[in-house]
Structure formats: C-alpha cells, structure tokens
C-alpha cells in the first residue's frame, strides 16, 4: 500500500510516479517521496509516502504542515512543537533566532520589541525594505507566517523592565536575550537569575565586527543558563554589527535553545 497525499493507494510493482500522477493529479509538477523531491520517472516501492503537488497551489493546512515537517528529525518535532520560547529584542540576534526556531517548528514564540523597522536594520535583521516604519513585532510576525503558518506567535511591543519581564514571559520554557544595549543585557540576566529560576536562558555578549568566527562561543554559566559571544567585541564606531558575525552568534543561541528544549543541558 502506498500513501499518496496522505491517502492510501494500492501498490503495484513497477509503478512510476509519473503514472501515478497521470491517474490522480495530472497537473502535478512537484513530486516528493518520503520527504525528498524526486523526478517523475522514479519507480515507487511499497509503503512509499508520495506527495503530488502543483507548484503554487495552496494545499490544505494539514497537508502543508506534514510537508513542512517532512525534513524534521523524527522525535525532535514532537518535542518542540508545544514549546514556548520568549525572545527579548528583535534585532540582528532576535529576528534571526526567531526565523531559525520558526523554520524547525518550535510551536510557540513570544516576540518582544518596542522599536520600528529602520533602514539601518536591514544589514543584518530579518526584515524587508517594504517593512521600514512597521513595528518590528508585526513585521516579524508577518515574515514568520510566510515561513511557517502553523506557529503560535505572540507579541509584546512595549519596553521590557526588571518588573515586567517575569510577568510578560511567565511560563516560557526558554528566554532568549537578544538586546542591543549592555545595560539591558545585564538587567535581563539579573532578572532571570533572581526571578525566573526555572526558565532556560540564552544571552549574548560580544559579536560585533568581523573578528574570527571561532571566537564566538557558547558558555554555560550554570544549569540551563548560557551566554553566547566572544565577550569582548562590542558595537562601536569602526566595529559595526553585520549579518555574518551577528548571525553566527544568533544561530549559536538558536541551537542552544533547541538543545534546552530537548533536555540537553
């Protein structure tokens, strides 16, 4: 028995994908078998999972969700789908962390920033020219929905403080500190350590410029508390923030979030 677009279909030896498409969906032009795109001449094996898709066609929610998740490592998906992660600051770190977590299917994201998208953000942040002037929370919500429409995205667009961080992010599994300013970075860690001892925490410090890649490290401060960066390279005139190195740090953060969600600490 085959599965074709999630419906059972009788298997016959020697059956090729093109024939199957001819019978079931003659206008299909994308062919996926067991999660991988393949040419239409592919000969099918019993128990194959086949997808026949017409490019640009809006597939049903369930079908699309299965397709998106076809590349996810089995077992990982199930464990991160119901997790909720808070991201403080949606700049070069936060917007990149959010995109990475959305792509792998972290099911719940709480995005916090009070700023608007500015042209100078576009050298490293996951926004577009036509979003200049929008609230970052709204712009990122739009962008994440285009990547993965099955997320639960919440937003908070006011300033974060020592008082409101524990309230706004109550119940998140992991808190990701992606602020720009060093005072806010310190404030966030202090708040998490004293008032949110259960939450995982991944902060960042030292990622400006174009210094060596491998100086960016993920340091464990204590159980479930990590700081990413080289600890030194601060943003200042002559040492700007740029997509490559900020992106390295952001993806360190995203991978550490994933590890914490999977119980690896």
């Amino acid at each position: 028995m085959l599965k074709v677009n999630e419906r059972p279909y009788e298997f016959t030896p020697g059956l090729r994908l093109a024939e199957l498409a001819q019978r079931l969906k003659p206008d299909a032009d994308v062919f996926i078998v067991n999660g991988f795109p393949v040419p239409p001449a592919t000969e099918l094996q019993d128990h194959d999972h086949c997808w026949l898709i017409r490019r640009g066609e809006k597939t049903g929610m369930e079908e699309m969700e299965r397709l998106l998740y076809a590349r996810h490592t089995p077992g990982v998906q199930a464990r991160i789908k119901d997790s909720r992660v808070g991201i403080m600051g949606l700049g070069g770190l936060g917007s990149v962390v959010a995109v990475a977590l959305a792509r792998i299917g972290v099911g719940g994201l709480l995005l916090a920033d009070y700023d608007l998208v500015e042209p100078s953000n576009l050298n490293r942040q996951q926004f577009f020219v036509d979003q200049v002037g929008m609230k970052k929370t709204e712009a990122l919500r739009q962008n994440l929905a285009r990547i993965n429409p099955y997320l639960r995205v919440e937003t908070f667009d006011q300033e974060l403080t020592e008082e409101n961080i524990p309230l706004v992010f109550a119940g998140v599994k992991v808190l990701v500190e992606c602020f720009d300013g060093p005072r806010m970075k310190a404030l966030a860690l202090r708040t998490a350590l004293t008032r949110m001892p259960e939450a995982g925490y991944v902060g960042a410090s030292g990622l400006a410029g174009y210094g060596e890649n491998d100086l960016i490290r993920t340091r464990r401060l204590r159980p479930h508390v990590y700081i990413v960066g080289d600890g030194e390279a601060e943003a200042r005139p002559g040492q700007g923030l740029m997509a490559p190195r900020v992106g390295i740090a952001a993806h360190h953060q995203a991978n550490q979030v994933l590890r914490l969600l999977l119980g690896l600490d």
Partner: peptide
C-alpha cells in the same frame, strides 16, 4: 562578575 558589551 558577568560583564556585557553592546551589540545585537
């Protein structure tokens, strides 16, 4: 002491 530098 955990010291932070700016940039994000």
């Amino acid at each position: 002491l955990i010291r932070f530098v700016g940039g994000g």
